[in-house]
């Protein structure tokens, strides 16, 4: 019993620390801010539901596949639209997590680990140069894996 209480206390403490790090925003406020940031920094090109158009890649029900490799996970932060967005690391991590959950759909891995501000900050320091080619290489791998999964 006391162990359970201790664990509960620990979780509360963690939650409290996390909340204070998020400038005292509640969970629903963090989500609303992330959705607002999607509208302000992503939606203009990626479209309201992430389905993209013409040369804008589809994120809807697809973007979560990138999380299945480390290079893919890194790419989603390093891609110029993310890395150069006028958002601090914490808000960029939150908008990426919002995209994964709300737009990634069925592509989101079951063991999805949310991006942290620290991870995002570190990756932003390593910009991509050949973005299109880099993405193409990642997509080839994703498609090969999907084909393999479908044949199982």
């Amino acid at each position: 019993m006391s162990k359970a209480l201790g664990l509960f206390g620990g979780v509360l403490l963690l939650a409290a620390t996390w909340c204070s790090a998020a400038q005292s925003l509640s969970e629903s406020e963090v989500e609303r801010r992330a959705e607002f940031n999607y509208k302000m920094f992503c939606r203009g090109c990626h479209s309201p539901d992430g389905s993209g158009r013409n040369s804008v890649p589809v994120m809807k029900n697809y973007v979560g596949h990138f999380l299945k490799s480390q290079a893919g996970r890194d790419y989603l932060v390093q891609v110029p639209g993310s890395a150069n967005a006028a958002l601090d690391n914490e808000q960029l991590a939150q908008v990426l997590n919002w995209i994964m959950i709300n737009i990634g759909g069925a592509s989101l891995p079951k063991n999805f680990v949310p991006y942290s501000a620290e991870e995002v900050g570190r990756l932003r320091q390593n910009p991509l140069f050949e973005v299109v080619e880099h993405r193409q290489r990642l997509v080839v791998k994703i498609e090969a894996q999907l084909k393999k999964d479908n044949n199982k």
Partner: peptide
């Protein structure tokens, strides 16, 4: 109009 802006408390 596509939604309300988020005003930081």
């Amino acid at each position: 109009v596509v939604g309300l802006a988020f005003d930081q408390p």
